[in-house]
């Protein structure tokens, strides 16, 4: 690294590409969380310090979170640092999707169907998946879970809608 490059980091208003955009985004997210909490708890009474109302702590915490957000975003704006990095959509989408599929189907279809279904949706997240293997494995593991959790441990989880 040449000296010129090394020095640019600490000057305010670093070139746009060098700014710690990750910190700027992080701070803004906190500000958003704070504003959301203030909005959601707007109707709660504050009370006094000797007799705190339900809203006192949530509101003070939300304000503090917001202030920290501003500080983090500002320090990110003024200094060089890490960028946003690579975000993938496929992984989060299918893995969280698989959990949602499980939530949506376990009551209506039962574990015997919700299990393989949600596992296969989860498998879409990885490009290393081999489908034949995954299908077999999901059925076998679901059967194992039914025996373990329902038969042996006795959890009241629905197995199938017709049972």
């Amino acid at each position: 690294m040449t000296p010129a490059e090394g020095g640019s980091g600490d000057e305010p208003g670093a070139p746009l590409s060098d700014r710690a955009s990750r910190d700027v985004a992080a701070g803004l997210v906190l500000v958003a969380v704070a504003l959301f909490a203030l909005w959601a708890g707007a109707d709660l009474p504050l009370g006094t310090l000797s007799a705190m109302g339900a809203g006192m702590l949530p509101r003070s915490l939300a304000v503090l979170v917001g202030l920290f957000g501003v500080a983090i975003a500002a320090s990110g704006w003024l200094s060089a640092g890490e960028g946003l990095g690579r975000w993938s959509l496929r992984g989060p989408f299918f893995i969280l999707g698989s959990v949602v599929v499980f939530a949506a189907t376990v009551r209506s279809l039962g574990l015997a169907f919700a299990g393989p279904l949600s596992m296969l949706v989860g498998c879409l997240a990885s490009h290393e998946t081999r489908w034949g293997e995954a299908a077999l494995f999901s059925v076998a593991l679901t059967a194992f879970c039914i025996v373990l959790f329902r038969s042996l441990l006795g959890l009241p989880i629905p197995i199938a809608w017709f049972l």
Binding site: S98, M119, F137
Partner: peptide
């Protein structure tokens, strides 16, 4: 055991656990 088999299994265990 490769991770491609492990993560769907972990997913299922976690789902059953939270539901229960």
């Amino acid at each position: 055991v490769p991770y491609r088999l492990m993560f769907p299994a972990i997913l299922l265990f976690c789902c059953i656990g939270i539901y229960s």
